[in-house]
C-alpha cells in the first residue's frame, strides 16, 4: 500500500465530508465550527501539493481570521429569545423569512444545474494537456533578474506586479465599503461588547511580542523562502484583533489620519514605484533596475504588510464591534 496515496485519500475524504456537513447540517453553529476545520484540512492539502506559501496564508486566514469573523457574526445573529434552547434550529435564525421555502422543484432544478456544471468542469479538466511546464521555466530563467530568490515572491512583486497592486486596491475598497455599511468615518470608540478580563489581558500581553517577532520573521523570509507580505500581514491583523478583544491599545486608538495612512500605505507605495519608474529616462513603467529591485521590493513589502494587517483587522473589528446606534 502506497502511504502517500493513503494520505491523499484520507485527506480528500475529510475535505469532502467536512464541506458536505458544512453545507448540509441544520445547526448553523456546527457549520461555523466546521468551516474552521475546513481551513485546516485545506492547508494540509496545500502542504501535500508543495505549495507552502499558500499553506502559511491558509493557516493564518483559516485558523485565525475566518474563525473570528464567522464565530463573531454568528454570535451577533443568534436570536435572543432562543438563548435558553440548547440547539438553535435553522428556522430560528433565518434571515429572509419573506421569500418562499425552496420546494422540491427548486431543489431538483438546482441539482440538475450543479450536476451538469460539475460534469462540464470534469470534462474540461480531463481535456487539459497531460504534460507541460506551464510558466515554471520562464519564471526560473528570469529569477536572477527579479531581485529576490523565492519564485512566488518574484511573481507577486515583480513579474505580475499589476495583480498585487490592484489586489491591494481591492482591500482598500473593501475597508471603505464596510465603513459605509456600518455608517462610520473611522474605528475610534468601537469597543468589544464585553468587558475584558484579567486572564485574557495577560495571555495577549504574552502572545503579542511573539506575534510581532513572527511578523518580522515571515517578512524577512519572503525574499528567499515561503513567506512574505501576505502571510505577515494576516498575522499582523490577527495580533491587532486579539489586542482589541482584550482591551489593549489597538488600531481603534489611532487617529483618523494615521489610520487612513496605514490603510493606503501599500497601494500608495506601489503607485509611487510606478510613477517613479515611469518618469525615469530609458525605462518603461514598472520596470525596476536590477540593482535596485531588491530594495524596492522590500520597501513595498513592508508597506503592503502594514496595509494588509490594518485592512483585515479593521474589517473584523468593524463587523464585530458593539452596535451602539
Amino acid at each position: 500500500m502506497n502511504l502517500t496515496l493513503l494520505f491523499d485519500v484520507f485527506l480528500i475524504a475529510a475535505l469532502l465530508l467536512v464541506s458536505w456537513r458544512l453545507l448540509g447540517a441544520s445547526d448553523l453553529f456546527q457549520a461555523t465550527v466546521l468551516f474552521i476545520s475546513f481551513g485546516l484540512f485545506l492547508s494540509l492539502a496545500w502542504i501535500r501539493l508543495q505549495a507552502p506559501d499558500i499553506a502559511l496564508a491558509e493557516a493564518a486566514v483559516g485558523a485565525g481570521l475566518a474563525g473570528v469573523l464567522l464565530l463573531g457574526t454568528f454570535k451577533g445573529l443568534e436570536p435572543e429569545e432562543d438563548r435558553e434552547g440548547e440547539n438553535l434550529s435553522s428556522e430560528a435564525c433565518r434571515l429572509d423569512p419573506i421569500s418562499p421555502c425552496p420546494g422540491r422543484a427548486h431543489l431538483l432544478l438546482a441539482f440538475t444545474f450543479v450536476g451538469s456544471m460539475t460534469a462540464l468542469l470534469l470534462l474540461a479538466v480531463l481535456d487539459l494537456p497531460a504534460e507541460g511546464d506551464g510558466l515554471t521555466l520562464l519564471v526560473f530563467q528570469s529569477l536572477d533578474r527579479s531581485g529576490v530568490e523565492h519564485p512566488v515572491t518574484a511573481v507577486l512583486l515583480n513579474f505580475r506586479f499589476y495583480d498585487t497592486w490592484l489586489e491591494l486596491g481591492v482591500l482598500v475598497a473593501a475597508a471603505l465599503s464596510i465603513l459605509c455599511v456600518r455608517n462610520r468615518l473611522d474605528l475610534r470608540e468601537l469597543r468589544p461588547s464585553k468587558v475584558p478580563d484579567v486572564m485574557l489581558r495577560r495571555l495577549v500581553m504574552g502572545l503579542t511580542p511573539i506575534m510581532i517577532l513572527v511578523v518580522v520573521y515571515l517578512l524577512w523570509l519572503g525574499d528567499h523562502a515561503p513567506g512574505g507580505a501576505f502571510q505577515a500581514g494576516v498575522v499582523l491583523a490577527a495580533m491587532l484583533i486579539l489586542l482589541w478583544f482584550s482591551g489593549h491599545a489597538s488600531i481603534t486608538s489611532l487617529s483618523r489620519i494615521l489610520w487612513l495612512f496605514s490603510l493606503i500605505a501599500g497601494f500608495a507605495m506601489m503607485l509611487l514605484a510606478a510613477v517613479i519608474t515611469a518618469s525615469w529616462p530609458e525605462m518603461r513603467p514598472l520596470e525596476f533596475a536590477e540593482e535596485w529591485s531588491g530594495a524596492i521590493i522590500l520597501a513595498i513589502e513592508v508597506a503592503a504588510t502594514l496595509s494588509i494587517g490594518v485592512v483585515l483587522s479593521s474589517l473584523a473589528i468593524l463587523s464585530l464591534g458593539a452596535v451602539e446606534d
Binding site: 502559511l56 485558523a63 485565525g64 443568534e78 438563548r83 485574557l200 495571555l203 513572527v214 515571515l218 484583533i241
Partner: peptide, 22 residues
C-alpha cells in the same frame, strides 16, 4: 512555520467565541 502559525493563532477563534455578545 505553518505549524507555528497554527499554534499561535489557535486562541483567536475561542476568544471570539467567548468575547462576542449573545
Amino acid at each position: 512555520n505553518a505549524a507555528l502559525l497554527f499554534t499561535l493563532l489557535a486562541v483567536l477563534a475561542v476568544v471570539a467565541f467567548v468575547r462576542s455578545p449573545g
